[in-house]
Design a protein around this nucleic acid. Sequence first.
DNA 1: CACTTGACCTGTCCGC
DNA 2: TGCGGACAGGTCAAGT
Length: 295
Amino acid sequence: MPELPEVETVRKGLQELIIGKKIKSVSSDWPKSFPNDQSQVNLYIINSSIIDVRRRAKLLIIDLSSGYSLVTHLKMTGQLVFRSNKQNFGAGHPSNSLVGKLPDKSTRVIISFSDSSKLFFNDQRKFGWMKLTEKKDILKHFTSIYGPEPLDSSFTTTAFKNRLLTRPRSVIKAVLLDQRVIAGVGNIYSDESLWAARIHPLTPTYQLTDQKIKLLHKSLIDVLQLAIKEGGSSDRNYVNAKGQKGSYIKIAKVFRREGQSCPRCNHEIKKMRVIGRGTHYCPYCQRLKIGKIES
DNA sequence: CACTTGACCTGTCCGC
DNA sequence: TGCGGACAGGTCAAGT
């Protein structure tokens, strides 16, 4: 589920809520959600404090004072929700909350802090995970495969073009979703940025002109920044660290809007399958010109 | 090389 | 109301 803007929103929330807290205990009843054993927990988690909360691609990295980190991937339905010691009982949750009293049936890991507050890792589909890893091993084990962060200042149009050229014969939608090419883009924001740049999702990368690449580069960054500003997209499960939904889906141009009118040209938005993913686009203003160069 | 399928899981929605 | 199948924002590995 969560893509870069959602993970970044969770990161910001956790930054504000859990930095400096000391961990008292960790429990999990689903080993795939938290594969580390109790001896590692005792040695490297218990009595250590949260010193930073970082993001790389769609990974959330919680650094501990022990020199280890809790590396988390939320996959499709993961949530990291913080609750203070008083918040968890009775009514009073915000109106845009998707989660009630915790733990609930989707809770896979509970991290308890010394002040009795708790961090809940919920994951309905159990695809996500939280792995204790020595901080110096994170690059080797997880992040070395990822392409550049699209919101870094070093991610210029030229850098983007060079990354796209690593997969010249693939269709652009597949390339945007490839985490080795660019980190953090998923199904929602690939559709949204392709619409903004008026590029058909099935366009082979080599057919994109420099003009189109420049426009897609800008569109991608604009879409991601807007989505962060909106607190991400909550189509189903996604909530931030306070349990609140994001609002981007309300202003999405094509995602999950098949059958509606394109806000730019008024033609009907269509949905199709591209590399096995539901793909939303406007057939009129994102035309595929077979055998010709897009301009 | 690049795409497809199936796997990992649970829940929801849609048609019969 | 029940039931089967398709589908859901992510990534793997294996097969074509």
